[in-house]
Design a protein around this nucleic acid. Structure first.
Lengths: 338, 338
DNA sequence: CTGAAAGCGCTAACAC
DNA sequence: GTGTTAGCGCTTTCAG
């Protein structure tokens, strides 16, 4: 900036004014400055600017995994909102590791991001208290913060969605419905299990632990779970898959077990996915774009001075019937009592 | 840092030493400092650090669209490599808009990222010359930089992949093969068209412009293209879809046209996608993770001082037969000449 | 082992 | 309209 000033024969401050489009600079002078900038290939150093102004115009996004369709859609929505408002985006994936979440968050804090959108992997966010007190704005998305930390939160209606999916299967005559969900320690998985149980209870059906299999998405495990379930004395006639990856793993497992007694199993997946329409898979759809946009809007409101009490927003889900969830129970020959 | 120093009864510099794990600090003193840091909730301000050191330990990633599976996989790979080496990642999507690409890149440059990985939307990168001369390291991924700008580049073998896909269809007896590709202005789309033509030429088949439809992925357009192709006097018996989204759009279109004469059309897609296995879709698979990792490794090498001449790496593709590409041509009743 | 002073490149506040 | 000065919070350099 000094060099530019020298080259244009003006003071440092004038260059600053031109660079920042501040009013009160003679058009001719400004032209001379701009020419010098062009000639020298000068680019403002935002690090210095940030240091001086105390505002970075950047926000941090911590999700579980960018390569997952749900989170990449969410990212896209957050990115759009951020860029539209002049914020740059730092992003990182926790990979469901709370230490990595914490490291990312603290690294972003050290960079003095103005705000943070977090899909938490961990359940303790006390480490954010000093930042929050120092004025950092934080919004939690998809999962709430750990107990003891208050912040705006945007969630999907996991309980309602799972309840609706299960009720749908019950309405189609199913009485033995298995639930294949994510790790019970993950908020969304636990909530979906609750919804599943609520629907069973509402229909007067018993809750059978033998019909529940939970854990991190893993094709081999899903296949094993399914094999076990179908080999039982009283196997399920329907499945509720608790998340997108498990739904896909379940489809693969069913395809590979095909020809055996599994065919005709009804299936409802939680979270929509590409080509579910072509495959005829009934799902409880979430709206990751809306989730991301809502979280971003909330954060941007806070960043522009909104001081209202903490929000907790729950977005609805939508059941999309496509065939797999509307199949009636298949009578299982040679296995009925007697 | 001043406050911490005061609270711990030491000088500023000692706090700095502790914060940065520099050697030469008495363990007791260090303990006192750390206690003060904890008590005050102090977090180093990286903006100041960056300003002083002239190195931001961050890299910028500009892709086409995070919500696209290909680019989100690439992102994940880049992110992993970056974090592993202590770099934070700025990311943004150009949405195939060269102005947005430029704005993002320049914003990252203003933040003084140490390096940049770009999937270019535009074809003029002269605007990067000053940065490059100032020491910024740039790697291009998936598509090369515009003429006149030299930089490391990592590509997929688009020509070879499309040639292999087309040759595969020819080997299965097809003579009239349509190509549904992306906008001809996009490097990858143009290269894949070349590969398609090479394969036809190698087999002595004519190139028929009526069998080629190119443009930005759009379900409605794909459907219209397909309808037109199939209604022609001498319709194709096979399709080569030029990218992931078009492959999916093609599948939907074929499904909705189903029952009519389209069934039995052979199909090879370029770029693999989730569930292509279950749907039995033969594809020419790229490896976005490897692409991202290679680009990141290249950049990290440069950042650690590698000054060797510019690299241009081309990653191979892999044809995965799954059924759709192995169907023989279907004789078309009532349409043959005579 | 610890500390004091200078300065990274910019902007805010105030002259002229 | 333009210029001068101070200082953002840190690291570097050099002294104790």
């Amino acid at each position: 900036m000094n060099d530019v000033a020298a080259a244009a024969g003006v003071a440092l401050k004038t260059v600053s004014r031109v660079v920042n489009d501040e009013p009160g600079v003679n058009a001719t002078t400004a032209g001379r400055v701009r020419a010098a900038i062009e000639r020298l290939g000068y680019r403002r150093n935002d690090s210095a600017r940030i240091l001086r102004r105390g505002r970075t115009a950047s926000i941090g996004l911590v999700i579980e995994d960018v390569a997952d369709a749900f989170y990449s859609s969410l990212s896209q929505a957050v990115e759009d909102a951020a860029l539209r408002h002049g914020y740059l985006l730092f992003s990182g994936s926790s990979r469901e590791d709370s230490a990595r979440e914490r490291d990312l968050v603290l690294a972003f804090c050290s960079r003095r991001v103005d705000g943070l959108i977090i899909v938490p992997a961990g359940s303790d966010h006390a480490y954010l208290t000093p930042e929050s007190e120092a004025g950092l704005k934080v919004v939690f998305a998809d999962r709430p913060p750990g107990a003891g930390f208050e912040a705006d939160t945007v969630l999907c209606d996991n309980v309602g969605g799972a309840r609706a999916g299960t009720a749908h299967l019950i309405a189609h005559g199913h009485r033995r419905i298995a639930f294949l969900g994510g790790s019970p320690g993950i908020f969304t998985a636990a909530q979906r299990l609750r919804g599943y149980r609520q629907a069973l209870a509402a229909a007067g059906l018993p809750y059978d632990e033998g019909l529940v299999a939970m854990g991190p998405p893993d094709p081999a495990r899903t296949r094993a779970d399914l094999t076990r379930l179908l080999a039982a004395f009283d196997p399920p006639t329907a499945l509720l898959a608790g998340n997108g990856r498990t739904t896909v793993d379940t489809l693969r497992a069913l395809a590979s077990l095909s020809g055996t007694a599994d065919a005709g199993l009804a299936l409802v997946g939680f979270d929509d996915f590409t080509l579910a329409d072509l495959l005829g898979i009934t799902v409880v759809a979430q709206d990751p774009v809306r989730l991301g946009r809502t979280a971003a809007d909330l954060l941007l409101m806070r960043l522009s001075g909104d001081e209202r009490p903490v929000n907790r927003i729950e977005l609805g889900t939508r059941l999309i019937p496509r065939g797999s969830g509307e199949r009636p129970p298949l009578p299982r020959l040679g296995r009925t009592a007697g």
